[in-house]
């Protein structure tokens, strides 16, 4: 019973956070809703007795991704006129909700057709995950490391492009002088 109550509270937080994320006009408030949803996901991992994933979720999603998006939002500091003008926002959200609802039902039916009971098992600790990760999943693990390196380089190159152009312009100006 306690587990069900915790699940209900976490689920309310997650759904409330996601709805707040979708509805808010100001981007930073959406980011706070997103933060609540991500903490809820970490709580769900803990509820599933999956300690390692809960910790990873807190460290990567909450600690890095949400903070990074908030920093980006604050860095851009979009003024009222740069925000998209969405007069029919609620109509669009309502329409897409109606369109997506059958898909949700279908998804739930498909998923719940698979297994209906939890297996009796030990808590999934970092030891078990580590064994799986470095025996069967070692090639995907290495590929992910290359992916992260490529993403890091790509992010630097994309975000720096403007600066390079500016320095080139400055060099040209200095040459002209």
């Amino acid at each position: 019973m306690l587990e069900v109550s915790i699940f209900a509270i976490l689920a309310m937080f997650m759904i409330g956070g996601s709805v707040a994320m979708i509805l808010n006009k100001q981007t930073i408030y959406s980011a706070f809703g997103f933060l609540i949803a991500m903490i809820g996901v970490a709580g769900m991992f803990a509820l599933l007795e999956n300690r390692f994933l809960a910790l990873a979720q807190i460290m990567v999603s909450v600690g890095a991704i949400v903070v990074l998006s908030m920093l980006t939002i604050l860095t851009i500091n979009a003024k009222e006129e740069s925000l998209p003008h969405e007069p029919n926002k609620y109509k669009w959200i309502l329409l897409s909700s109606v369109l997506v609802a059958p898909f949700t039902f279908l998804l739930y039916k498909t998923l719940s057709a698979a297994h209906r009971n939890f297996a009796q098992m030990e808590t999934i600790t970092s030891k078990v995950v580590g064994k799986a990760l470095f025996s069967e999943w070692v090639l995907p693990f290495e590929i992910v490391s290359i992916l992260l390196l490529a993403a890091m380089l790509g992010a630097i190159v994309i975000a720096r492009k403007e600066e390079i152009v500016k320095t080139e312009e400055i060099i040209k100006k200095e040459e002209n002088v």
């Binding site: 979720q57 990567v60 991704i65 994309i158």
Partner: peptide
């Protein structure tokens, strides 16, 4: 989670 982190950065 690692893929999500890469996606976020890009």
């Amino acid at each position: 989670i690692a893929v999500v982190a890469a996606e976020a950065a890009l």
